[in-house]
């Protein structure tokens, strides 16, 4: 059969596929992705399967060390705290609080921030300039300080923390979206689309958005990790989730007074949070590498 193409045709995978393939090639990222999935799973259904209520106080078993120590008890896998609450259950609930809420808050910030950023990125002139200065000002304030001030206005508590973190994250999304849109707008294919008579909205939806979606996902992974840190830090400082809440930061803060007697209370929530943060960050890293690699080749 005559071949109508003398060169062997190479099948190139699509851009998303390529990035995903590259991402999966990196075993560490892949493992961390699975861990993140696991944490999401725990955050969603954990509260229904935890052995005890996080607030249930078993006065018979106070300050029980984790079960692998000789003084431990298998019924309380990771031991209990000073009020006889099961640490394992508290950690599971903490996953929902710290990690689950971070996912949601970051997503909320993404939706609002990207919309604002798209508006700002597509517009020019004095209004956008004022907006940019405002943005610059907000971004120059350390996020935790801003969150602390917002909590100071609203008053301490987990609910207010969520609002504070949301408000802190939005400008970062706006900023990122604006930058990538600006970069994209400079490219020739946009000009070509313009010359073809495409409307601004059309350009945004069909030309720009598919090209920036990955940067936004990347920013999302950063935002989740920042949200976790801020929520936990506020909890730790006693400004977020209140004393006694199973939120990880609050748990750590509660552990300080007992650190002489019950080091596991300080270690276990820390390890959990560390693992979660590490996975999220590594996934973010892997994602960035995969994208960078693709744009290079």
């Amino acid at each position: 059969m005559p071949q109508n193409d003398i060169y062997n045709e190479v099948e190139y995978p699509g851009p998303y596929q390529q990035a995903w393939g590259k991402f999966k090639q990196n075993h560490v990222s892949w493992v961390c992705f699975c861990i993140v999935m696991f944490f999401i799973f725990v955050a969603v259904i954990g509260p229904f399967i935890s052995p005890y209520s996080p607030y249930h106080q078993d006065t018979g078993y106070v300050l029980l060390p984790p079960s692998w120590q000789s003084a431990g008890n298998v019924h309380f896998l990771l031991g209990t705290d000073d009020l006889g609450r099961d640490v394992f259950s508290r950690l599971i609930h903490g996953t929902s609080l710290t990690f689950g809420i971070s996912l949601l808050v970051a997503f909320g910030a993404l939706v609002i921030g990207v919309s604002l950023g798209a508006l700002a990125g597509m517009s020019k002139g004095i209004r956008s300039s004022i907006f940019n200065h405002l943005l610059d000002a907000i971004l120059s304030i350390p996020s935790l300080l801003l969150a602390v001030v917002i909590v100071a206005i609203l008053g301490p508590g987990l609910n207010n923390t969520i609002w504070a973190v949301l408000l802190v994250l939005i400008p970062q999304f706006v900023h990122r979206t604006q930058i990538v849109i600006r970069d994209e707008l400079k490219k020739e294919y946009i000009t070509a689309a313009r010359l073809d008579g495409a409307s601004e909205f059309h350009i945004l939806k069909n030309s720009i958005f598919p090209n920036i979606i990955e940067s936004i996902i990347l920013q999302y992974s950063l935002a989740v990790s920042a949200a976790m840190l801020d929520i936990a830090a506020l909890g730790f400082l006693g400004l977020g989730a209140q004393h006694g809440s199973p939120e990880w930061g609050a748990m750590l803060s509660d552990s300080i007074d007992l650190i002489y007697r019950a080091s596991w209370l300080a270690i276990l929530p820390g390890i959990t949070m560390f693992l979660c943060l590490l996975s999220v960050n590594t996934v973010g890293h892997g994602l960035r590498n995969a994208l960078k690699h693709r744009s290079e080749s």
Binding site: G249, I259, S263, A266, F274, T282
Partner: peptide, 22 residues
Amino acid sequence: ATILNSIPIFWVGLLFILIFTL
């Protein structure tokens, strides 16, 4: 560096206290 980057700072402080002080 990546691992240390993911340790929440308040936990670092607690760990240091736990190890070096206690």
